[in-house]
Nucleic acid binder design. Structure first.
Lengths: 122, 122
DNA sequence: CAGGATCCGCTGCGATACTG
DNA sequence: CAGTATCGCAGCGGATCCTG
C-alpha cells in the first residue's frame, strides 16, 4: 500500500484521468493560460471534467491556480516546477504519436469498423 | 474523426487501458515473456484484464503473440518494433516516477486520507 | 467569465467459476 | 498452463441547467 510496483506505476497514477496529460502538455507549451483558453485548447472536454482534473492536478502540486479576483472573473493556470518536469517526460509520447500517425490512424479506423459490426450484429 | 488533436492525443488512445503501459514496459525489459510470468510481473492484474489488454495490443500491432502449440500450453509475448519504440517513449515517465517517489507517495497518502474522511462522513 | 450542482447512462474493471 | 465466460457495479464522464 505504501509502495508502487515501479516508477512507471507511480507516474501513471498521478496522470490517471482522461485529460490530465493533455492539460499538462498544453500548459507546458504556453505559460499561464486562462480557463477559457484552456478549455478551447483541450478539445471536447466539458467544464465539469476540466475543473475536476485541474483541481486534482492542483492538489497534487503539478498545477498552480491564480485567481486575480477581478470582475469579470479572471483565473489562470500554470505549471509548478514539478508539473513542468512531468510535462517534459510527456514529450517523447507526443513525438511517438506524430511519428506514427499513419499506423495509429489505420489501427483506429479498423477498431471502429469492428465496433460497427458488433453493434449491427446485435 | 479521422484526426487527433495532437500527437500526444493519438498516443494516449493507443495506451488507453489501465495496464497497457505497464505491460509494454515490462516486455521491453525482458524479451519474450510467458503468459504466467507476465501475470506475476504486472501485479494485481486479473486474467481477464491481462488477456484483454494483450489482445488489443496485439491487434494494434504493438505486441506479438507466439503460440508454441505444445502441451502443456506454452505461449509467449514480445514487442514488435512499433511496440518497442513506444516502450522507449515510456522510459522518461518511469524515471520521473522514480525521481519523484517521495512527493508522489506523500500526495497519495493525503488523497487516501481525504477519501477516508469522505467515507466516514457519509 | 469561471465555475457549481445534479442527473444519469455506459463501461471499465474486478471477482468468481469453468475449460482444453 | 493459458486462457474463457458470466455477473455485477462503482465511478468516470457527458449533458444540462444554474450562479456570483
Amino acid at each position: 500500500m505504501p509502495g508502487f510496483t515501479c516508477g512507471l506505476d507511480a507516474t501513471l497514477r498521478v496522470v490517471a484521468g482522461k485529460w490530465k496529460p493533455l492539460i499538462l502538455y498544453f500548459l507546458a507549451q504556453g505559460g499561464p493560460t486562462r480557463y477559457g483558453e484552456l478549455r478551447r485548447a483541450v478539445r471536447d472536454v466539458s467544464d465539469k471534467m476540466l475543473i475536476q482534473q485541474l483541481k486534482e492536478l492542483e492538489a497534487d502540486g503539478l498545477v498552480k491556480r491564480t485567481d486575480y479576483k477581478e470582475v469579470p472573473p479572471r483565473v489562470d493556470y500554470s505549471l509548478t516546477p514539478l508539473g513542468r518536469s512531468l510535462a517534459q517526460a510527456l514529450v517523447p509520447l507526443c513525438n511517438w504519436g506524430e511519428a506514427n500517425l499513419v499506423e495509429v490512424t489505420r489501427v483506429f479506423a479498423q477498431r471502429a469498423a469492428e465496433d460497427q459490426r458488433r453493434a449491427s450484429r446485435k
